[in-house]
């Protein structure tokens, strides 16, 4: 119930931000829409810890700046490889075991791997990730990485 109420608030804020008009009719309509969407989602039983992970609190916001820094760093490396006349790629596949336990943590880890240029998660499972790296070093860099530890901290493990 708390989750549903929180979803209504978030959706209503989303409506207000996107519309930018604050007449009585539009604000009422926005609130009605937010309630209707949450009611439908309630009937579909998709409002759970996965659909609306509010139990994570503000921890994701501490993870994002570090991820942006990583994206900048590896993006610059990939740019140098692309512009290098010799094109020094050494594509490598690597399989490893992630240490997250919850689905949210696993998805975040896989998405972060794909989001950083130079590494792509090809297969994602509960006990093994298959990652394609643009170079040997970038593929080796995802095994038992700093990212793994940070996602663990973010999903609430010590």
């Amino acid at each position: 119930m708390l989750r549903a109420a929180n979803s209504v608030v978030v959706l209503f804020a989303f409506w207000l931000l996107l519309s930018g008009y604050f007449t009585a009719f539009l604000v009422t309509a926005g609130f009605a829409c937010a309630v209707a969407v949450v009611a439908f989602a309630w009937r579909m039983e998709v409002i759970d810890h996965e659909g609306h992970p509010m139990h994570l609190g503000l921890r994701p916001f501490a993870y994002v700046p570090w991820l942006l820094k990583e994206i900048l760093k590896s993006g610059w490396q990939v740019t140098r490889i692309i512009l290098d006349p010799k094109l020094p790629v050494s594509p490598t596949l690597v399989r490893f075991r992630p240490s997250q336990r919850t689905d949210v943590g696993l998805v975040t880890h896989a998405n972060s791997i794909t989001l950083t240029p130079g590494t792509i998660s090809v297969e994602v499972g509960r006990d093994s990730f298959l990652v394609h790296g643009l170079t040997r070093e970038s593929a080796a860099g995802v095994v038992a990485s700093e990212m793994d530890r940070r996602v663990c901290r973010f999903e609430g493990q010590r």
Partner: peptide, 21 residues
């Protein structure tokens, strides 16, 4: 990068530079 890279998987890395940076 999308044009220069040798195979499909390496091309995806080039596309992710456009998508993120």
């Amino acid at each position: 990068g999308l044009i220069r890279m040798p195979d499909f998987y390496t091309r995806m890395h080039a596309a992710s530079v456009t998508d993120t940076l």
